[in-house]
């Protein structure tokens, strides 16, 4: 129960940060927090207290469900791609406008 509520708190933190932060880099960081929370949530849901890794060995024991782990690899790869693109975009935006503040950027967009 404690683990789940902490993970949900992390999701809430990510959403709150995305909604309120005015700095572009901070927005990207909160996007990553949200993504990490989603990954933790999936892995926690299919956790077994005495489970072993889903690899066939001679050791035996009950293996955890391999499906969520396979899905989360996809999430990690796509998260890395999105973060790389977003960071490169923020560099270019800084070169163009000299600021990374959402509010000022939107005002400059209106003036053009």
């Amino acid at each position: 129960m404690l683990q789940l509520s902490l993970i949900l708190l992390m999701i809430g933190l990510g959403l709150y940060g995305l909604a309120t932060s005015r700095h572009l880099i901070k927005s990207i960081i909160f996007l990553n927090v949200l993504e990490a929370a989603v990954i933790l949530f999936f892995l926690r849901l299919f956790y077994l207290p005495e489970g072993t890794a889903p690899i066939i060995t001679s050791l035996g024991g009950e293996a955890v469900d391999p499906l969520p782990q396979a899905l989360m690899i996809t999430t990690i790869v796509i998260g890395a791609s999105v973060t790389a693109l977003a960071l490169m975009m923020s560099i270019k935006i800084y070169h163009q406008y000299g600021t990374l503040d959402w509010k000022i950027l939107l005002e400059k967009e209106d003036n053009q």
Binding site: L4, L45, F46, I55, I56
Partner: peptide, 30 residues
């Protein structure tokens, strides 16, 4: 909250654990 103390398992995951090695020849089921 009801999920916190139960440990669910997808039916796909169960199938993969039982038949995965014979069908794909991979010991790492992920």
């Amino acid at each position: 909250a009801p999920l916190a103390d139960s440990f669910p398992e997808t039916s796909i995951g169960e199938t993969v654990i039982h038949r995965g090695y014979d069908e794909t020849a991979s010991k790492n089921l992920v």
